[in-house]
Amino acid sequence: MFAVGTFAIIAALTVFDRVLAANTVGTLAILLLAVLGFLNGRPEWLDLGITYGVLNLIGTLAILKFFRHGDLARDAEEEDA
């Protein structure tokens, strides 16, 4: 599954394909972490999963904002859209 995701990141045609693939790999990492935590009898790994989830959200939004404005420090309300 990760191989598929990584391949999708490398082979993707546009920026948005790459972002989508990266986000999906993040989701899969969380799921894998949860399942492995159960298999090893250490459900504490779920805490790491929560952290990954939050980082995934912020990272993806930051990348999207960067590619749209070329700048991270901009207020959404200044836009003309």
């Binding site: 989508l20 989701t27 969380i30 989830g53 939050v54 993806t60 999207l64």
Partner: peptide
């Protein structure tokens, strides 16, 4: 974690 997915999933998809 599930709630996190269900709230942030659409936000990311929509932004994308």
């Amino acid at each position: 974690i599930l709630l996190l997915f269900f709230f942030t999933g659409p936000v990311i998809t929509h932004a994308l």
